[in-house]
Design a protein around this nucleic acid. Structure first.
Length: 614
RNA sequence: GGGGACGUAGCUCAGUUUGGUUAGAGCGCUGCCCUGUCACGGCAGAGGUCGCGGGUUCGAGCCCCGUCGUCCCCGCCA
């Protein structure tokens, strides 16, 4: 293997096979950099030593596939290349065989990713040859392996569930597959193995897991593809803490496989607290959170500034951004979500002029340095939004959540924009760039962790739908309420918390799970509370309701997005970097050119007629 | 469904502000030269429907309208 040869291999006879990364022709001496997945080695073709090999070498071009026969030799001291892992040696070729030629590639796999993602995806096989992509998928393999090993050690069995199945209750649009045998009927691809894994608990498999492909026919995002992979698990007789412990173990193992030490247990935070402190249900803890600065403003000041005193007033702080010009600030304004009924103050000079005490207090409360950029976000009384401002005791109102979310989104956007300046995301970048580091078992920087996992708990069971004027489920219908809140299900739905939990890390939702309902009577109450009729429940998952009646153990579990975990560890900003053949934002595979129309013959066999809108 | 950014040589980009002769650069590519390079070097050369369609104009890469594609976001989706 090209990249594995070292000084100790000097003198060995070898046959190296791989792709020509680069060719340097010095006339009677030709250097070939030969690349395979292990790395690059330099082949020397000397006209005196191998006239034939040298002659072939003259016609070799980038990405030709060749075999070089020869001896490993130490380079002369002044010819050592310290930038190459194999820089101390080279192959003195006695023979060169051209195994295959190659057309001129639209871009070179020897170089960094090109900007044009269309071309990258169309020629994905060339893109995947790049060192960075090879590294990403090796990383993905190692992470997957570590998770399998950890879960197996913890007593989980890996069990497969169907891909051709029935619509599951996840709420997204299904991908449908027509049945040839049953005209007019369709299978659905699983949005998750949810019902099957719960049935596996009923079947007595105790602890199940699966690295499961899931499918959701919704619009794509940087962190969302049509098909994605989940680490899906379920266990019998659990409590939240037991699920957390299992996940923490395998996450620790997964990160260790990438050379990152992840301290456990992970911190926990309630949903309400997360909204207050980060304006998000997937907080990024690499930067300071939001600060409640209501106390900095007098009633008069709020009236003058036209800020709603009944709503939260929070400050966000992005460190080390420095002072921004008016133009720079204005360029940031589109990053603020106008639709949340919130407004912001980012001109601190003006604020200090009108309300010097308030401005000083805000900077004091946020512990802002001179160079830190601070923005105050507050409710806009003038703004009419479609949101309920009904305040249920012990629970954030929708308008409050909107103000926090506006601040949280703004914080995340600005953090992304000024990543260079605050440097809080840098350690992740370093993981990417340092090709050695990812293999190292040592943490990259002692005591400084680039990855901040966080459990979120105590989600509300229901959300109030203003349009329908009723409480609707915030989760899938098998999520159990927290035991203590069970009594309030009908009388006070607002106060009921769900026995479910999310795992977030660095501003991404990594996974979501819950303790499930295992009793039929509770399930019926929930269905009723969710406005799902008996008939509807029976039609959608009657088989599951039947199964529930045959001795269902208490059970619960979670599913974590494997692609997202790999993305974080690869330091990638997009899922496409860790998925071999991803789809574009318009849901197209540019290489395979899918989807496509199919023949009339195929449609006929499937009893399908296509009716396109004109 | 909506908002934003982008689209000029194989790739990365300049040129668009203020319409004006034959659209440029770097890398890559082709040919020749070169025995110690490793982003090799030197000389010469090829390569463009300026995404596509229409319009305004004496004249459009540049202005207007439409359309397509890629990316990011909202909606949607845990």
């Amino acid at each position: 293997m090209c990249g594995e040869l070292r000084a100790v291999n000097a003198g060995q006879q070898v046959v190296l096979m791989g792709w020509v990364n680069r060719r340097r022709d010095h006339g009677n001496l030709i250097f070939l950099d030969l690349r395979d997945r292990s790395g690059i080695a330099q082949i020397v073709l000397d006209k005196e030593l191998t006239p034939e090999g040298h002659a072939k070498g003259e016609h070799v071009r980038p990405e030709f596939v060749v075999a070089a026969v020869g001896k490993v030799r130490l380079r002369a001291p002044d010819a050592i290349n310290p930038k190459m892992e194999t820089g101390e040696i080279e192959i003195e070729a006695t023979e060169l065989r051209v195994l295959n030629d190659a057309r001129l590639a639209p871009f070179s796999p020897a170089e960094e990713a090109i900007q044009n993602e269309e071309v990258r995806l169309k020629y994905r096989y060339l893109d995947l040859r790049r060192t960075e992509m090879q590294r990403n998928f090796r990383l993905r393999h190692q992470i997957t392996l570590a998770i399998r090993e950890s879960l197996s050690k913890q007593g989980f069995l890996e069990i497969e569930t169907p891909i051709l199945t029935k619509s599951t209750p996840e709420g997204a649009r299904d991908f449908l597959v027509p049945s040839r045998v049953h005209p007019g009927e369709f299978y659905a691809l699983p949005q998750s193995p949810q019902i099957f894994k719960q049935i596996l608990m009923i079947s007595g498999f105790d602890r199940y897991f699966q690295i499961a492909r899931c499918f959701r026919d919704e619009d794509l995002r940087a962190d969302r593809q049509l098909e994605f992979t989940q680490v899906d698990l379920e266990m019998s007789f659990p409590r939240q803490e037991m699920v957390f412990a299992v996940v923490e173990q395998f996450m620790k193992a997964a990160f260790a496989s990438a050379g990152i030490e992840l301290p456990i247990p992970f911190p926990r935070i309630s949903y309400d607290e997360s909204m207050r402190r980060y304006g998000s249900d997937k907080p990024d803890l690499r930067l300071p959170g939001l600060t409640d600065v209501h106390s900095a403003f007098t009633g008069d000041a709020l009236a003058t500034m036209q800020i709603d005193p009944a709503l939260p007033i929070v400050a966000l702080r992005i460190p080390k951004v420095g002072e921004l010009s008016r133009k720079e600030r204005e360029e940031n304004h589109p990053l603020f979500d106008q639709k949340k009924g919130a407004k912001f103050v980012d001109d601190f000079k003006r604020l200090a002029k009108s309300f010097p005490e308030a401005a000083a207090k805000v900077r004091e409360l946020t512990r802002a340095d001179e160079a830190d950029f601070v923005i105050v976000v507050a409710g806009d009384p003038a703004h009419s939004i479609k949101a309920s401002d009904t305040k249920f005791p012990g629970r954030l109102s929708e308008r409050e959540i909107n103000v926090y979310a506006a601040a949280g989104n703004f914080r995340a956007e600005l953090a992304k924009k000024y990543a260079e300046r605050h440097g809080a995301f840098r350690i992740t970048d370093q993981v990417v760039q340092d090709a050695q580091a990812w293999r190292s078992p040592q943490p990259l920087i002692d005591g400084c962790y680039a990855f901040h996992p966080m459990w979120l708990t105590d989600f509300p069971m229901f959300e109030y739908d203003l349009a329908q004027a009723k409480w609707v489920p915030a989760h899938h219908p098998f999520t159990a309420p927290i035991e203590a809140d069970m009594a309030n299900l009908v009388t006070d739905p607002a106060s009921v918390r769900a026995n479910c939990y999310d795992l977030a890390m660095n501003g991404l939702e990594l996974g979501s799970g819950s303790i499930r309902i295992h009793r039929k009577d509770v399930q019926q109450v929930i269905f009723r509370a969710l406005g799902i009729s008996d008939d509807e429940a029976r039609a959608r998952f009657g088989f599951f309701l039947d199964a529930l009646e045959y001795g269902t153990p208490p059970h619960g579990g979670i599913a974590l997005g494997l692609d997202r975990i790999v993305m974080l560890l690869a330091g990638a900003a997009n899922l496409r970097e860790v998925i071999t053949f991803p789809k574009t934002a318009k849901a197209i595979d540019l290489m395979a050119e899918a989807p496509t129309a199919v023949t009339g013959e195929q449609l006929k066999e499937l009893h399908i007629r296509v009716a396109l809108k004109s």
